Simulated scan of single mutants.
Amino acid sequence: MLWMKALHIIFVVCWFSGLFYLPRLLVNYAGASHDATREQLAQMARRLYRFVTPFMVLVILLGIGMLSTNPGYYLHAGWFWAKMAGMAFLVAYHFQCGRYVRAAVEGRDRHSTRYYRFFNEVPVLFLFAMVMLAVLKPF
């Protein structure tokens, strides 16, 4: 169980590094004035998205593994369901990043740097909330 928890935390860190950096690439993409720079940033974002997606899958699989060790506890804990709601949002956020990356690669993304700067802050809020839920177990 402890090795599963350790791996879960490691892959959460890896996944979040991508969730933090990917929108920053899109901020720079949206603000770039040269086509070559935009193309390079779009390709960097595409490669990063492909790199961090397996980390998301591993986080989910390890989370399911930990759940299976004591389902009676987890499935009756309010904090767990709040954390799962946050996880569902982050998976949706990850896939939305993929849509934005695909649009950038195809040259059809029209979001502003201001939009991506706001979009970039969203996972920070969920990270704080989910860590607090997992550690403090408030309900």
Rank of each mutant, 00 (worst) to 15 (best):
V13T: 12
L25F: 13
M4Q: 14
A129V: 09
V13H: 08
L62P: 06
Y73T: 08
M130N: 09
L136T: 10
H94F: 07
W81I: 07
L25T: 03
R110D: 15
R114Q: 15
W79E: 10
P71F: 07
T53N: 12
D109H: 06
A134R: 06
H8D: 11
V131H: 04
V122C: 03
E121W: 04
L19S: 06
S112K: 14
A45T: 11
Y116H: 14
W81K: 09
A36M: 05
A92T: 12
Q40M: 13
S33T: 15
V59P: 07
A77T: 11
R24V: 15
F119A: 03
G63W: 00
I64V: 05
N120I: 03
M44Y: 14
V131M: 01
L133N: 01
A103S: 10
F16D: 03
A32L: 00
L7Y: 12
H34T: 10
T53I: 07
R102D: 14
F89V: 10
E121H: 13
R46C: 11
A6P: 09
A32W: 04
L90G: 02
G63E: 07
V124Y: 10
L75V: 12
M56K: 02
H94N: 08
V57H: 07
G78K: 00
H8G: 06
T37W: 03
F139R: 00
P123E: 01
P54C: 02
M56V: 09
